[in-house]
Structure formats: structure tokens, C-alpha cells
């Protein structure tokens, strides 16, 4: 049986433009805001419901996003106890990042080698 992975704390630093997640297994994930926006899992950002997947698109790790309202976080809210939703400065707020998706999106070298 695999123990469930969930965040202990989530910090969105608008100054550094990095979202930090400390997980219950003590792993520390640092997500640049641009990566989170590029990986927004909503149907609109993925180009339709048929393109929605439970895992991040590998392309998002090579995408570079400039500083703009589309990559600035206005607010972060928990969705129940299973996911996170982000409201962006351009008004976009449809993406629901569940814990599994968010963990798979961790850009650290250890996670990327898995």
C-alpha cells in the first residue's frame, strides 16, 4: 500500500514568483509561476477536454514564460483537501492542480529523473 502524498504547507511568494510546497514526505518543491501557468491543467489551456491528462505534459518543462499578468498569481486557494486552484492576474482561474499532478510537476532534478 502506497502512503498518500499531500502538502503540509504551500507558500506563494509573489516577489520571487515561486510557489513552494513542503510535502508530507518532507520533499520540498519549488515551482516557478511560469511553469504552473504553462502546466495549467484546465481544458482551455490543454486545448480541449480530449487533451486533458492526469499527468503534466512533458513539454511544459521546456516552455519559458515571460513576466506578464498571465504568469502572476493573484491568489491561491485549496480545493477541499485534495487540490489547489490558482487565480492569475489575467483573470484565469480554471485550473485545479490535484496533489498527484502537482507532485509530478515538481521541477527538481530528483523528480525529473524519475
Amino acid at each position: 500500500m502506497v502512503a498518500p502524498i499531500f502538502p503540509k504547507s504551500i507558500t506563494a511568494d509573489k516577489n520571487a514568483r515561486v510557489l513552494t510546497v513542503i510535502w508530507n514526505d518532507e520533499h520540498n518543491s519549488q515551482y516557478p509561476f511560469g511553469l504552473l501557468r504553462a502546466a495549467c491543467p484546465c481544458a482551455e489551456c490543454r486545448g480541449g477536454h480530449e487533451n486533458m491528462r492526469s499527468e503534466p505534459d512533458p513539454d511544459v518543462f521546456s516552455v519559458r514564460m515571460a513576466e506578464s499578468p498571465a504568469t502572476k498569481i493573484r491568489n491561491v486557494e485549496a480545493v477541499g483537501s485534495y487540490a489547489l486552484t490558482i487565480e492569475w492576474e489575467d483573470g484565469h482561474h480554471f485550473g485545479i492542480y490535484n496533489w498527484r499532478y502537482l507532485r509530478l510537476l515538481c521541477p527538481c532534478p530528483i523528480c525529473r529523473e524519475k
Binding site: 500500500m1 504547507s9 504551500i10 506563494a12 509573489k14 516577489n15 483537501s81
Partner: peptide, 18 residues
């Protein structure tokens, strides 16, 4: 399965303003 019945706590959310 025990993992599915276990409740996950809501994480502490902090937003540091620019």
C-alpha cells in the same frame, strides 16, 4: 484500502505579497 479512508489534512496556505 486504508490509504483511501485516511483523511488528508488541508495544507497551510500562505501568499507572500509582492
Amino acid at each position: 484500502p486504508q490509504g483511501e479512508t485516511q483523511l488528508m489534512p488541508t495544507p497551510i496556505l500562505t501568499v507572500i505579497p509582492a
